[in-house]
Design a binder for these strands. Structure first.
Lengths: 229, 229
DNA sequence: CGCGATCTTGAATAGCATCAAACTTGGTGG
DNA sequence: CCACCAAGTTTGATGCTATTCAAGATCGCG
């Protein structure tokens, strides 16, 4: 798949992150960064392989997951436009701790680790911004994994739905923008497809949702949010 | 409890972390840092309060935990000599995500957040080292929480015991340095005291451990490690 | 020696995964 | 246009792990 993209040093959502780069640094960045258009369900990097690059999402969504010995995939996070992936591996100088895979078509810039680290080390402002971002991300990760340990599937599902409502959601009748299969949705919530199905139909029976193979409509947002908390 | 300690800018395990400080910076650090000797089970900072300081452990051990609505404590990590606590809150400019409490008597230096952030921003080498540390810590956190989600209590217990063996452990007869009560040990493993008791006695019945109210002796390290994996 | 705290043991139960079978749905080709 | 197939989804039945509640055992300590 030949790509005729050129890295503008993230004109997108990550622009501010890199805004402190000097012209020379910016040029170095742009020269080294390799953008690539991925289709849905393509792997960007594999758990356990040397962390050679940091990936910057210009568009699309990806999931990060670990594979257990048993073979099962555990999703540890998702990233969207403007987010970075593979950051920790590169900084720690260790292999990637998880696999990154696109959930939808995505445009992703690969920034070689050495270049990235070089820029971070010589540009304190960039370093500080990365630090803040990593700190925020780490807090969030902790919260999500604690939540997954201690909240019931029903609650997590409600929260997941609430998080994926389109912005322009009318308060009583919204449409969850879930493009993924039930299998994948179950993974993101951290449960099995069967259990998810039961929970979803439970909510439908109570008139909170309306289910359709392709779409999940929220009929009673109030009630949904009540369960999400 | 009046303390006559003085901060040497961490002559201990965290020394290398701060080794890049220039004399003036080092002096500023030492002036601002406030060491304090805590007894066991004292709270260093509370979840939800503004993150005003980074804490650097000179000696002792602490646990970090979140309290759920239900009232239950969820341990999200432990820190020992040379480790930092409260780092993410200060960097993210957000309240502490967890509460820090000593498990044993500990000597801990409080470094005001502004001073810490100031030093990090003006000393790229320090910033980079903090970054690497945070990246490592975050990977570890992720691994531990995933493990807690998907490994059985028996396995986690075995791992916990293996991690807490004294260094000079003879291969077949070691003594786990567990000073805490069963209640606390259960918290650290992420289970209930009752379940922990059952698991421990299960291992004892198989001749892997020998239990005593005050001490846990490992009789068959091989077998223990086999269960830990 | 007795009392309170901690630890242990037992029984009942919740929540979820798993297995397996029925049921949709969309696509394909006759 | 319809029959059919494969993939995805739903539903039911069952089992397992760990929690919870409750009662009993043990220890340390006054």
């Amino acid at each position: 798949m030949p790509v005729s993209l050129q890295c503008q040093v993230c004109t997108g959502a990550a622009r501010e992150l890199f805004s402190s780069l000097l012209p020379e640094q910016r040029a170095r960045f742009a020269r080294a960064a390799v953008p690539h258009a991925y289709r849905a369900h393509e792997t960007i990097f594999h758990e356990g392989t040397p962390a050679l690059a940091v990936y910057c999402l210009r568009s699309g969504t990806i999931k990060l997951f670990r594979r257990l010995k048993h073979g099962e995939e555990v999703v540890v996070g998702t990233r969207g436009a403007g987010d970075l992936a593979g950051l920790r591996g590169v900084l720690a100088g260790m292999p990637y701790a998880s696999t990154a895979m696109t959930l939808e078509p995505a445009i992703v810039c690969a920034i070689p680790g050495e270049i990235f680290v070089g820029l971070v080390r010589e540009n304190p402002m960039l370093g500080y911004r990365i630090l803040v971002r990593l700190a925020r991300e780490s807090r969030l990760l902790e919260g999500q994994l604690v939540e997954r340990n201690h909240d019931r599937v029903a609650k997590r599902t409600a929260r997941f739905l609430a998080r994926h409502l389109p912005e322009d959601a009318p308060s009583t009748s919204a449409c969850a923008g879930i493009s993924t299969s039930r299998e994948e949705m179950a993974q993101l919530i951290g449960t099995s497809p069967e259990t998810l199905s039961r929970v979803l139909h439970g909510l439908a029976d109570e008139g909170i949702l309306e289910l359709d193979r392709k779409e999940i409509r929220v009929l009673d947002l109030e009630a949904l949010l009540r369960r999400a908390d």
